[in-house]
Design a protein around this nucleic acid. Sequence first.
DNA 1: CGCAATCTACCTACTTAATGGTAGGCAATC
DNA 2: GATTGCCTACCATTAAGTAGGTAGATTGCG
Lengths: 188, 188
Amino acid sequence: MRDTRAELLMQAETLVRGRGYAGFSYADLAAAVGIRKASIHHHFPTKVDLGAALVAAYAARYAAALEAIRADVPDGPGRVAAYGRLYLGGVEQGLGCLCAALAIEGEVLPERLRRDIAAFFADHLAWLETILRAGQADGSVRGGADPASLARYVIATLEGALLMERLFASPDAFRGTLAVLVDGLRPQ
Amino acid sequence: MRDTRAELLMQAETLVRGRGYAGFSYADLAAAVGIRKASIHHHFPTKVDLGAALVAAYAARYAAALEAIRADVPDGPGRVAAYGRLYLGGVEQGLGCLCAALAIEGEVLPERLRRDIAAFFADHLAWLETILRAGQADGSVRGGADPASLARYVIATLEGALLMERLFASPDAFRGTLAVLVDGLRPQ
DNA sequence: CGCAATCTACCTACTTAATGGTAGGCAATC
DNA sequence: GATTGCCTACCATTAAGTAGGTAGATTGCG
């Protein structure tokens, strides 16, 4: 992965998260990176190739963060709170979730990208389910609720909060929603 | 509001909710409605005019639904559950929230539309805050938490669940998240 | 080692199709 | 007779993508 390629990925991610997948063009990206439009095609032949690389890099970064949280934070609610804080940066920088930006395209999103973002969410769902199950086992998370349902609920809340609080440019409101979410997971 | 105008609004809403604001064109809409592209400009001179009309119609429909819920459902959790069910149709039809589709465009969304969708969310937030405050007063909603924060949390969860469960085409999972959300609002 | 062959990363210049939007005409209606 | 609602025929711009070339680095091999 060359310097230019990494720079393309970085700037493209910012563009997609800032204005949506259909809302950015190779011309925008070329201007942001400082090379010619045609040169982007050397690194990413089609826009779908670029999109897939973007999701792969994004997912890899998240995967590393999830592992770090599991290693560093011992209890269930603390882990979910740390997970939620990963979204906070987006609110602060005015950038949405990459996969949410792609998901909005729905029916016209190329099949390959749909598969990739579905896998992204499925990975997070699986991680959260494990974390919540462990929390229920060690008593840090309230029992009763099914960990799989709880996992979907956690991601939904955070994705929605990022979507809305980015619009309002309210990191504080995001923190508030995260607090309500995490408190609701504790026993009682 | 003529027949054609209403038809344009209906089809345009389906297109925007299905593929995003940047992802649909006047050509798509013309094909869907069965008139020529130029004729759309007679009803909606610019795409921003169309977008604003879309948000206005969408917001009006929701406003009526919110009033109906307040009139028909007596308790706080029941009202939030009914509110959540308004989103369910989107999951079932594979259509996201109109305002979420617009919100994704972020920085490049015309200022007028940004204001309109911010008002949409602000209206829902205000309605929910009233509903939750009343619920705390009559004991149907757990006390302690600030109604304004709770309102933001409710919308975030539902918007996020719609976004994700549309991708997975899982109305059942949406219902599961709604159940977790509503249960968490009850006393205890 | 020396050097031709190849590869990498970029370029200019272009194509094709689609975009939002305009100009102006025409028939029906108020 | 003006307005409404639609039309055909455009326009300028931008989209993604292609063709083909060039300078410089890397490699294979006699």
